[in-house]
Simulated scan of single mutants.
Amino acid sequence: MTNEEKQKTTSRIIAKAWADDAFKARLLADPIAVLRAEGVEVPAGITFKVVEDSATVQTLVLPPKPADLSDEDLDKVAGGAGVWCMFCVMCL
C-alpha cells in the first residue's frame, strides 16, 4: 500500500468514525479487528491504540527514532519534511 493509499484509508476510517458512533466505539475498543475489517493489513506483533482528541485534550505521538537517522535527516523531519499517519509503523 502506498503512502497515498494509506492516507486515503486513514481519512475514510476517521470519517466513518465521525459519522457512526457504533463504528467509533468498535474502533476505540478493538482497533486491530476494525482496521482489518476495513482492509488494512496489520502485521503480527503490532498493537494499535486509538485515542479521541477533544477541544481540551490533544494527543502528541512520538514515533520510534530510526536507528540509522543522521543529524541531517533529523533536521528535515524537525522542519516539517516528514509526513506521519496512523500506519507509520508499517512504513519502516
Rank of each mutant, 00 (worst) to 15 (best):
M1C: 09
M1D: 13
M1R: 12
N3C: 09
E4Q: 09
E5H: 10
Q7G: 01
T9H: 07
T9M: 15
T9F: 03
T9Q: 15
T10E: 15
T10V: 10
T10Y: 12
T10N: 13
T10D: 15
S11R: 14
S11F: 12
R12E: 09
I13N: 03
I13Q: 06
I14C: 02
A15I: 04
K16P: 03
A17D: 03
A19F: 00
D20K: 03
D20V: 07
D20Q: 06
D21W: 11
A22G: 05
A22L: 08
A22F: 12
A22N: 08
F23E: 06
K24F: 05
A25T: 13
A25E: 11
R26A: 15
L28N: 04
A29P: 11
D30Q: 02
D30M: 05
I32G: 06
A33C: 04
R36D: 10
A37I: 03
E38R: 06
E38Q: 04
E38G: 00
E38F: 03
V42F: 01
V42A: 05
V42W: 04
V42K: 05
A44L: 11
A44V: 12
G45I: 08
I46Q: 13
F48K: 11
V50T: 00
V50Q: 06
V50W: 06
V50C: 08
V51E: 15
E52R: 01
E52C: 00
D53E: 15
S54W: 02
A55S: 13
A55Y: 09
A55E: 10
T56V: 15
T56Q: 07
T56E: 07
T56S: 14
T56C: 08
V57N: 06
Q58N: 12
Q58E: 14
Q58H: 08
L62S: 07
L62R: 08
P63R: 04
P64E: 10
P64I: 03
P64N: 06
K65H: 00
K65P: 05
K65N: 05
P66M: 05
D68Q: 14
D68R: 13
L69S: 06
L69G: 03
L69F: 07
S70K: 04
S70W: 02
D71R: 11
E72R: 10
D73T: 04
L74M: 07
D75C: 02
D75I: 08
K76Q: 07
V77R: 04
A78P: 01
G79S: 09
G80D: 06
G82Q: 02
G82I: 05
V83D: 09
W84N: 10
W84F: 15
F87P: 01
V89A: 09
V89I: 14
V89Y: 14
V89H: 11
C91E: 15
C91H: 04
C91P: 00
L92G: 14
